[in-house]
Each structure stands twice: as C-alpha cells, then as structure tokens.
C-alpha cells in the first residue's frame, strides 16, 4: 500500500494562527482512506485547530491542505462540505428546539442545498446514521430534552449523514458513558475498514485513542510522531509530550495508557 494517491485529506507544511497567535507550525500529515487516525496531545497543542484547518473552517496561513490532491480552497463550499464532514466540540445546546431527526437531516444539506427537498434516499441515509449511533429509538425527541451523551450521538449521526469520504470528529466521546464510548470505537473502526472512510478524531481519552489505526502526536503546534501505537517512537513521543505522567503498556493485543502515580 503506497500512501500517495490513497490520501483523502493531506496537510502540507500547514501553519495557522488564532487571533494572531501562531498555533500550528508547519504540520504535515496524510489522512488515508480506510484508516482511523487519532490526533493526540496535551492541552493547547493545536489539535482542534488542525481539525478546523483540515475542514476548511480556519485558513492556513502557510502551506496547503489537499483534498483528493487538489488544494482545499479550489473546491466550492458545497463540494468541500460533501467531501469533509466535521463535528464540533460544541454539544448542540443551541439546537434545543429541534428534534433529533431534524438535526440529523441537516447532514443532507451539502447534497440538497438550502432549497432542495429530501427524497427517499436521503431518508434512508438519515435512518442508517441514526441506527449507527443508536439514536433511532428517540428520533422524535427534542434536543433540549436529551442528556449530553444523547445529544452527542445525535450530532455524530448528523456528521455521518453527510456520507463524506473524510470524517473529522472533535472530542466525540466527552459525554459518553463507557458502553457508548466502546460502541463509538467499534463504529469508527467499521466506518474506516468497511466503508473506506478516512476517519480523524481528536480524543482526550488516551486509552480510546490508542485503539485507532494510527496516532498523530501533536505538541506545541508540531507533529512529534505519527504511526501505529506498535511503533516505539510513537509511544516514546506520547510519554514525552504527556511529561511521563502516563505509561503505555501492552495488554494482550492492545495498548492501554495508565497514570504514572509513583513519583
């Protein structure tokens, strides 16, 4: 498998600033189809900003983002939205009056435009997205009547309903209980391996992030290491950016992170 040509989204030497403060410094990553990539790093590393640059929501001040080998800014808003789905860290408090189904249907906007009417195919995609995040049972409830975790699953279904080849998720597990966190990890694996989507997630929970196919370790706006957790340099970079407060150990087939309590 050669990396070139398979990449759905790629950042080339990308720099970006927020409110005139430089946040990213020459970040280069490839996000191949059929692979779940987790972006990890300490607070303020620039993880969310990187995701927003990849989604075209924050302009790169240097370097470029390529979507299917074409610079992101050359795509129209709508084409870009059809190819890159993004889910924010916000938890949909503003959408309290909308029903879950209304919210998930918004995921079809990039395909329908504002004036289009959803057809049977859109309906099928919305149903499937709600089934995938287990929110079909309360599809008719209002967002305002849901718990934080339920709202998060509705918003995830909204992102899935776009059916984009690249799916960018900013902290998708914050409000989820352990069973639903694990269900999400399984879902991300399926989306990547079965549907061939380039899945990218920012995750604070390191033990969940270590289940991804690849890790991008980010610190102070720079990539410290990238690759699967099996690679020793990736594990070393993780230990270093988290100031050796965690230890990464192998349990059976998996890697897990445990807090280093002994000083």
């Amino acid at each position: 498998m050669t990396r070139h040509g398979l990449s759905v989204l790629a950042a080339r030497e990308v720099s970006a600033s927020l409110d005139d403060t430089p946040v990213l410094h020459g970040v280069s990553i490839e996000l191949p189809a059929g692979c779940w990539t987790a972006i990890v790093g300490p607070n303020g590393a620039g993880k969310s900003t990187l995701l927003r640059v990849l989604a075209g929501l924050v302009p790169a001040s240097g370097g470029e983002v390529l979507l299917r080998d074409r610079p992101l800014q050359e795509w129209s808003h709508r084409e870009r939205a059809q190819h890159v789905a993004w889910m924010s860290q916000q938890h949909g408090e503003g959408a309290a009056d909308l029903g879950v189904r209304d919210v998930v249907h918004l995921g079809r906007l990039p395909h329908l435009g504002l004036l289009g009417t959803p057809g049977p195919e859109d309906e099928r995609i919305v149903q499937r997205a709600m089934a995938q995040t287990e929110c079909a049972a309360w599809a008719h409830r209002r967002m305002g009547a849901l718990s934080g975790g339920e709202r998060q699953r509705a918003l995830l279904a909204r992102a899935l309903a776009v059916r984009a080849p690249a799916l960018l998720l900013d902290e998708p597990t914050t409000h989820l209980d352990p069973p639903h966190q694990i269900a999400l990890v399984r879902l991300l694996h399926r989306l990547a391996h079965d549907d061939g989507i380039a899945v990218v997630s920012v995750l604070h929970d390191l033990s969940l992030a270590l289940q991804a196919d690849r890790l991008v370790v980010l610190a102070a706006g720079r990539v410290k290491a990238e690759g699967p957790c099996d690679h020793a340099p990736v594990r070393d970079a993780l230990a270093e950016v988290f100031e050796h407060a965690i230890r990464i150990v192998r349990v059976g087939e998996r890697w897990i992170a445990i807090p280093e309590l002994a000083s």
Binding site: H77, L109, L114
Partner: peptide, 9 residues
C-alpha cells in the same frame, strides 16, 4: 462553524 461545514454560504 457547523453551519459553514455544511457548505452554507
């Protein structure tokens, strides 16, 4: 941002 990510001008 979510609205923009949905391609809305």
């Amino acid at each position: 941002d979510s609205a923009r990510s949905l391609g809305l001008p």
